[in-house]
Design a protein around this nucleic acid. Structure first.
Lengths: 342, 342
DNA sequence: CTGTTAGCGCTTTCAA
DNA sequence: TTGAAAGCGCTAACAG
């Protein structure tokens, strides 16, 4: 690998001092236009770029933002990983930095990895994701004055320890309910997560509120909960479908559970969208591909990435931002197919 | 953010020179056991870690491996992104390095980004992925003596410009055919990609070879091709199903096309697995979730990541490695459900 | 506006 | 085995 051009080589060739070359790059307004032009030409000729490590050493900032890819496959963020990382990388680059990936165990144990990265001054800050209930990372970083921004709240009830962006789950399920009410449904079931799961509770709140607001039934017997957040064989939906007064529509807390409901419906000879309307949440890649297409709530991943990076640099700006997901209507929730069966 | 401990602080506290501390970390065998113990204790007390940038500057190696996340969503690698990046990150960490993410346009244009990273000495090498036909990156990096390893071949027919790992597509579809022949099928159709797409051609070869070997029909009229590699509405399958002598089983070149076939079957009142056996390729998350579950070929992503990193460090070791995908049998390809309907 | 000096924190080289 | 000197390539601070 060829040795890269240095500042000194540029300086010599341009007949100026090293500092002038540095200024040409970092503070061009300080140079006489002629000098600037001459130096710039030499820079281009030689293809010179400041050595990132030397600059980092001197400026005490690595230009790297740490991002942890969960060590164990937990499934939930899975469906966004691709979109999110792509967007985050692009956003971070817009400010001339890069994303540094690392792995760490969940919980307290993982803090050692963050500490290591910090002790080596390998990163300037962190973007947090896969936030868990009572996640210790946020407070830990805040206490050390480390810049960070989080996709996801810590859900402890206490004030958030730092800037965050999250998706408004209640708004999402409320949109789904409104959509179903507009189709004439008044008995809309909710396929939730385990009670106490803050994401599930949030999404349940939206279902409850919207049902009340729009005159649909609100009744705890319209709620069933999935045992496994990431894989459901349809048990939750089955419970509601086999009840005395089954709902005519189902709002699921996520796509995995909605997909489980497909199985439960099929077993009972019912068709999603025709016999029972169904909506999911997350707009996973699968939602667009199954038959019939699953109506779902698309998380504004690209916007989340943009805001997270902005909050990282301007932590005072806005401490928290709640973004509305967007309802993507497919055949699973509309009686009339209307060509939307994608 | 608190200033990190330096070598000098450790040295002073331990009553030794800076160099001795450096040796305690990088060449402990050079120290007297007593000195080593004393220095190590101080290192632990202070939580000292060498500053990565200073070390990198001095040793001329950043400890960072570049990985490009494709700028445009091309869909194909999408399904692996999560697993692959996780595995790659872990592998790279095993040797004390980290992954640096960046974006770059496809083709020649993107080389400027690689050049920039190199000129700044921001990375020690690259792991390539999303390899395109005639991908210019490999030869470009080789010509500059930059370490790299590729997931995916360049498919030009010329010798590969550097170490690579890839999945043996032909072996995969051959496995699928053998599985179908074992179920009694002799007319097995192939749902391929556009002719000339080397991935599709490779997978087609396996189908053809295995059909010939196992006495199944081999006939170009058993082949239909999808227009769009990433989204197929079932047109390919429809062409075969509506032919004079339709196949009783279908091997698709990827899951997206197989999923398209679900639609074509449904429209004709046929059930995957019951009336027509069907297999996909890639074992996308969707394959496990659709009804019936889609039999598919799982790429050994974790092993690919491990080998890519090994090749990066030992380019002479093995220039190319072809890995066998694993057939994951689900209900779409077996007449008897057998409880495998996942 | 330009140049000189100093030093970021580390490891390599060489001397003791 | 340990220590001192030098310098990786850059920019902050200041002098001219």
């Amino acid at each position: 690998m060829a040795r890269a051009t240095t500042l000194e080589q540029v300086a010599e060739r341009a007949g100026v001092s090293r500092q002038t070359v540095s200024n040409a790059i970092n503070a061009p307004e300080k140079l006489h236009p002629d000098t600037l032009r001459r130096v710039k030409r030499v820079i281009d000729e030689l293809g010179y770029r400041p050595d990132s490590k030397a600059r980092a050493l001197r400026t005490r900032s690595s230009g790297l933002i740490g991002y942890c890819v969960a060590e164990r496959q937990d499934g939930s963020i899975n469906v966004f990983m691709d979109r999110y990382l792509r967007a985050l990388t692009a956003e971070v680059e817009r400010t001339g930095r890069h994303l540094l990936l690392f792995t760490a165990p969940d919980g307290e144990e993982g803090l050692a990895v963050y500490e290591d990265l910090l002790a080596r001054s390998a990163v300037d800050g962190f973007v947090l994701s896969n936030t868990a209930v009572g996640d210790p990372r946020h407070a830990w970083l805040r206490d050390r004055g480390v810049p960070f921004a989080s996709f996801g709240r810590i859900w402890t009830g206490e004030p958030q320890p730092g800037p965050w962006v999250d998706v408004d789950g209640a708004s999402g399920t409320a949109q789904a309910v409104e959509h179903l009410v507009a189709q004439g449904h008044t008995r809309i079931g909710f396929l939730g997560l385990q009670k106490g799961n803050p994401v599930g509770d949030d999404r349940e709140r939206g279902w409850r509120r919207a049902c009340a607001e729009h005159g649909a039934h609100v009744d705890d017997r319209l709620i069933a909960r999935a045992t496994d957040e990431h894989r459901d064989r349809g048990e939750a939906a089955a419970a509601l479908l086999d009840s005395d007064d089954p709902p005519t529509a189902l709002v699921a807390a996520n796509d995995a559970i909605a997909l489980g409901a497909y199985a439960a419906l099929e077993e009972r000879g019912l068709r999603p969208g025709v016999d029972v309307a169904l909506t999911g949440f997350d707009d996973s890649p699968t939602a667009a591909v199954v038959r019939p297409g699953l109506t779902s709530l698309r998380q504004p991943i690209e916007e989340i990435a943009a805001r997270v990076v902005r909050l990282l640099d301007n932590p005072e700006d806005d401490r928290g931002e709640l973004l509305r997901p967007e309802l993507v209507v497919r055949a699973s929730s509309v009686n009339d197919d209307g060509g939307r069966n994608g």
